Simulated scan of single mutants.
Amino acid sequence: MNYITLKEAANATGLNETTIRRLCKKADSKPYIRLRKGKNGSLYTIQTNYLFDKYPPKKAPDKVDENRVYTPANVEPIQGYTLDYTPLLTVKDELIQVLKDEINYLREENKGLREENKELKLLPAAHSTTKEADPKTRKSFWHRVFG
């Protein structure tokens, strides 16, 4: 998997670096962000496939043809960046399987808790044995102090 710095990502997409940083701060972006040690400290890097999935790459045309409409379909991708979705699909399939296993586990646990709840409802209700615990027969504070 190819990772590029945030500055390179901003240049590749034509967006501001702050926009790329906002994308990196999102919770669903965390698996695609890595911290790389550099000469001047730590650099955040982002996976190119994920970046270009969110923001398509931009390429400035050499000369602008006023009659041509530029859409993402007819803009050529940047040299050296290919969109390979195979690793992303593999990760998504693994995540789906993990979530299915979690659902099955929770269903079994829920089934067990429901059975336990049915058993508890069949038990007789607990009654207090002391008179003072019953609020209807309990004496007020002043009656208890002065009799």
Rank of each mutant, 00 (worst) to 15 (best):
G41Y: 04
L83P: 00
L83S: 02
P57M: 11
Y50V: 08
N110I: 03
K37N: 06
D93L: 13
M1R: 07
I103V: 15
K30F: 04
A10S: 14
P61L: 04
A60K: 14
L120F: 15
L113Q: 09
S42D: 06
K58L: 13
E17K: 14
R68S: 01
P61C: 07
N11Q: 12
E76Y: 05
G14C: 08
N16H: 13
Q79S: 10
E119K: 15
I46S: 01
E102C: 10
T82L: 08
T19A: 15
Y81T: 00
N40G: 14
A9M: 07
N117R: 12
V75T: 12
N117L: 14
D93M: 12
P87I: 03
P31H: 01
T19G: 07
T13G: 08
D101W: 09
K92M: 06
Y105I: 15
T48F: 00
L6F: 08
P72C: 02
E17C: 08
G80I: 00
I46C: 04
I103Y: 01
E76P: 09
E108N: 15
E115D: 13
L15A: 02
Y70V: 05
N11W: 04
R114N: 10
T13Q: 03
E8D: 15
P72T: 12
G14M: 08
A9Y: 02
N11G: 03
L99Q: 12
Y105D: 15
D65Y: 04
N104A: 14
L113R: 13
T13K: 09
K39H: 11
K25L: 06
Y32R: 06
G41S: 06
N110L: 05
V75C: 04
Q97T: 14
L35N: 11
E109W: 04
A9Q: 01
S42C: 04
D62G: 10
P61D: 09
I46D: 02
T90E: 13
K25V: 07
R107M: 06
G38A: 11
L51F: 05
Q47V: 03
E17M: 11
C24G: 02
A9C: 05
A60Y: 08
K39L: 05
E94N: 14
R68Q: 14
R22S: 07
D101I: 03
E109H: 04
K30S: 09
V75I: 15
L43T: 00
T45E: 13
S29E: 09
K26D: 11
T18V: 09
P57V: 09
K118N: 11
K111R: 15
E17A: 10
Y105C: 12
K118W: 02
T19D: 13
D53Y: 14
L120M: 12
I96K: 12
